[in-house]
């Protein structure tokens, strides 16, 4: 069975299927029960699975993540929702200091099989703290896997893989494309493996690396530049930000000799820097131009009147492509 679903529906279906498939799976978070989550990702799941499997928690992110760690250490598979990514900050102590380190700290005796799902990113006119992209915080922390889907199909398959993963996974859901488009999504359980990037568009002249909501912006820029200039850009959706799919990145750069990283996170110390460093290490002599980053600015995500100026646009990406190819 295959139907067209939004990313939000695909995520809801993945949660539904894993709740049915594995009695150890429990959802917890703020307003995920009767309300079905503020974005409705858990809509209907309380009615279907009851309040022991779909738990409305107090407003206490440290408590949510810390309790999930305890559950995961004791035979459960918690999937916690943090209402907006920046609401995780009061809970970072539990995530960074404990969830991420437990396996190493116990020398492999205890793992923490849990998922933190959280809406993230700008573009929906949320103010600061409702629009952050701090994926680099998590990718920088040993012991966490970081996943960002850019399509309904991937969202479902990646979330199922994340729930089945033996280690903690931070699963970032780009709010801007929650309902932006539909695509065919198979019914039933299927997996998209963690740690594998996807070549979404093939090309020979330049490699663009993007994830989340930026993937579609990058794709449109690549299409426009081909029409305008005839250059064919390869567009790669990284999908998992830790561990990075180094092989796919390097193979593409070896082919095209040029690269561009697009992310909506702030530029300084964003993941673009890590990807460029990887390219320098593994493919320096293939490069025909410096690798560019098209990123958010080093300011808190601004208000609605200038939000679109903060986010990388097709125009900024096209300009980056031109500068790189004409270098």
């Amino acid at each position: 069975m295959s139907r067209e679903l939004t990313m939000l529906q695909a995520i809801q279906e993945a949660l539904d299927l894993k709740l049915a498939d594995d009695e150890r799976v429990v959802l917890l978070g703020e307003d995920i029960g009767v309300n079905g989550g503020v974005f409705r990702a858990t809509d209907g799941l309380l009615a279907k699975y009851g309040e022991k499997r779909v738990i409305d928690t107090p407003l206490a992110e440290s408590g949510i993540i810390g309790t999930a760690i305890g559950m995961a250490l004791n035979g459960m598979v918690p999937v916690a929702e943090i209402q907006f990514l920046a609401f995780i900050f009061p809970g970072l102590e539990q995530l960074l200091s404990h969830a991420a380190r437990m396996r190493h700290r116990t020398r492999g005796q205890f793992g923490v099989p849990m998922v933190i799902r959280t809406p993230y990113g700008a573009g929906i006119r949320g103010p600061e703290l409702h629009s952050e992209s701090v994926e680099a915080f998590f990718a920088h922390t040993p012991g966490l896997k970081v996943v960002v889907p850019s399509s309904p199909y991937d969202a479902k398959g990646l979330l199922i893989s994340a729930i089945e993963d033996p280690d903690p996974v931070v699963f970032l859901e780009p709010t801007r494309i929650y309902r932006a488009f539909r695509e065919e999504v198979p019914g039933g359980l299927y997996r998209v493996p963690l740690g594998q990037a996807k070549v979404v568009r093939e090309g020979e002249d330049l490699s663009i690396f993007a994830w989340g909501s930026m993937l579609r912006t990058a794709l449109r820029a690549a299409e426009q530049i081909e029409q305008e200039r005839g250059w064919r850009c390869e567009v790669i959706d990284l999908r998992t930000l830790y561990p990075l799919d180094r092989e796919t990145i390097i193979t593409s750069v070896q082919k095209t000799g040029r690269a561009l990283v697009v992310h909506e996170a702030h530029k300084t110390a964003g993941l673009g820097a890590e990807i460029i460093s990887l390219i320098n290490d593994e493919a320096l002599l293939y490069l025909r131009a410096p690798v560019k980053r098209i990123a958010g600015f080093d300011v808190p995500v601004p208000m609605f009147s200038v939000e679109d100026d903060y986010l990388p646009t097709e125009a900024r990406i096209r300009q980056g492509i031109e500068e790189t190819i004409l270098f």
């Binding site: 407003l59 920046a86 009061p90 103010p127 600061e128 208000m303 009147s305």
Partner: peptide
């Protein structure tokens, strides 16, 4: 300066502030 919005009102004259994070 129009950069905060309705959850981020800051007024030194009346020593008023607010924010979107619970209990912060």
């Amino acid at each position: 300066k129009g950069k905060g919005g309705h959850m981020h009102l800051f007024d030194p004259a009346t020593k008023f502030s607010c924010g979107g994070i619970i209990a912060a």
